[in-house]
Design a protein around this nucleic acid. Structure first.
Ligand code: SF4
Ligand code: SF4
Lengths: 152, 152
DNA sequence: GCAATTAGCACCTTTTGAGTGCGCTTTGGA
DNA sequence: TCCAAAGCGCACTCAAAAGGTGCTAATTGC
């Protein structure tokens, strides 16, 4: 449906909070105190982000999560890839397993190639949008992010 | 899920076929003879495209559809808008009715503005991808080799 | 009149997304 | 030592969306 899932939004908000904490651990409770989000679901999302290597987790009583990389090196694309799986855009080019035999139209599909081009460009856009640019949006507008995306 | 619906794909394929026909009427049956698609669903999609003003319909025995505009003036964005409704990308900025009271995070959301920027750029991308570019992209395969269409 | 075709609406089925239950593990601190 | 706070893992329910179909008109060339 050409729309980000709420899981992705939750992930982004959580990452923004972690970025604000600058390396300090932040628990799910702390995140949900800042943003009114369903705690359990956010926990699930953070867990997935941990599996994807975007955050590190600290267990135990005073545990929580920290950013695994600098905010400049985490992109919207990373988050989407971690939380929504593959970057398909079409049903034919799902990267790994195409169950059900794939699309019947494929051998004669005139739109496959151009749509893949659109997908690539979209993905480039996501890859060039860093967590840093999201964080700085809170206070002032970062024009640097726009310039980076504008490359075509 | 950041993916085009099958309805959109069907619509694009149908429009490509209509574009190949260069103003001649093409029925749903004809389209589904060229592409192995579920006839009824394609009919539903064409109907929606007609409502959106992208195609004209001719009823009756030898009826069908024709392009309402030149292929240069139909964009991927038009098709998506016609078949998937609004261009949300996030749940907060759905244009018309926001049922359920909208997002609770909104007053303090740090990612709303930057995500809207991404949405706008994505939309620009879709608006700049014309049906003409899809048609010419597909024609690296000669129509004669397809076997189904022989009258051009 | 007949057959082909679009129009309209409602319905069903499958898939996906969102959220929760429940028990376990880890760990710091009282 | 014990407990509370936090993450871990899995499976499960519930709701919404997407995909597809049934059925009955209305239109129109032959
Ligand atoms: S219709 Fe074309 S673009 Fe769509 S899934 Fe099939 S092969 Fe891919
Ligand atoms: S979290 Fe922010 S971007 Fe997402 S719907 Fe709410 S206000 Fe919009």
């Amino acid at each position: 449906m050409l729309q980000l899932t709420k899981r992705t939004e939750y992930g982004l908000l959580a990452l923004v909070h972690l970025a604000d904490r600058e390396g300090a651990v932040a628990s799910v409770r702390e995140i949900c105190e800042r943003f009114p989000l369903p705690k359990r679901t956010v926990a699930e999302v953070l867990k997935d982000l941990q599996h994807a290597g975007l955050v590190d987790s600290i267990r135990g009583s005073s545990g929580g999560y920290t950013l695994a990389r600098a905010p400049e090196q985490v992109t919207l694309g990373d988050v989407v890839r971690a939380l929504e799986g593959a970057p398909p855009l079409t049903t034919c080019e799902s990267p790994i397993v195409l169950k059900g035999g794939g699309c019947e139209v494929q051998p004669m599909c005139p739109i496959k190639s151009p749509i893949q081009r659109v997908r690539e460009r979209l993905w480039q856009m996501l890859e060039h949008t860093t967590l840093r640019s999201l964080v700085s949006k809170g206070s002032h507008v970062s024009l640097g992010a726009l310039g980076a995306v504008e490359s075509n």
